[in-house]
Design a protein around this nucleic acid. Structure first.
Lengths: 126, 126
DNA sequence: AATATAATACGAAAGTTTTCGTAATGCAAG
DNA sequence: CTTGCATTACGAAAACTTTCGTATTATATT
């Protein structure tokens, strides 16, 4: 039990990860381009954060070219799980079903989605 | 559109809120008692944080007695919604059904819970 | 009333995250 | 080759969060 990593990405790190999960890989400029739609920070800020993330092993980068290419080292699913777990324990009294129902309640699902979900649920009963 | 509040409780603030949501109201000592099961910080730390939260309008307090009594000013449901929303947008590509299915996947539900959930789902179809 | 006890108030230090200015470096035109 | 441009490197400031030492105040006990 040695290498269990404990890295909780911070808020801005998560934003960067989201772009990279989406694109698979990207340059700082590309990431920054996307981010600047919703936030208002300079290019070097994004750069610095991504460099720090590389040190933290959240990202890796290919420095073969002058313009470095970054990609995520941590899986989206892992973060999903971790955050869902935290929500379950902290906000839904540790009950998974309450978490799911909470999500159902808060988010409004289309008829389509409901059907999809129902099918999905069927797989759980065997 | 003036008074839309933007308060994201921090990590430790959330821990305190959880105790207060649970108890309804409590003194600093009571909150600190609970917190000290899982963390290892001094009484005055909890006190200070709760005082700050009061300024931020996350809590209110009754100072009638020497020992102040705190209660949450923000609803658990609101935070649930906000965090679920954030997860949906950031981690599930904005799809509510994927969020729900993700939760179903990650958390393991008992047969009981599944039945409960199915009933719950039925209410959404009319 | 004096003392001990328990609570709040205050302010600042320590820790973490976010931000960016400036310098250095490589590349591509001209 | 030299000038201009885009990129990375570096370091530190700014902003925010967490922590706690110490002072002050109120209450209860003797």
């Amino acid at each position: 039990m040695a290498s269990e990593k404990k890295y909780n990405p911070t808020e801005s790190e998560l934003e960067i990860l989201q772009v990279l999960w989406d694109k698979g890989e990207a340059t700082v400029r590309e990431v920054h381009e996307v981010l600047s739609n919703t936030r208002d920070t300079g290019y070097t800020t994004t750069l610095k954060t991504m460099q720090i993330m590389t040190v933290k092993k959240l990202l890796e980068r290919d420095t073969a070219q002058r313009t470095h290419i970054y990609s995520p080292l941590i899986e989206k699913e892992k973060i999903q799980r971790k955050l869902l777990d935290k929500m379950k324990d902290g906000l839904f009294n540790g009950s998974a079903s309450r978490l799911v129902m909470g999500a159902l309640n808060d988010q409004s699902l289309s008829r389509e989605e409901l059907k999809e979900l129902r099918n999905f649920l069927d797989k759980f009963e065997e």
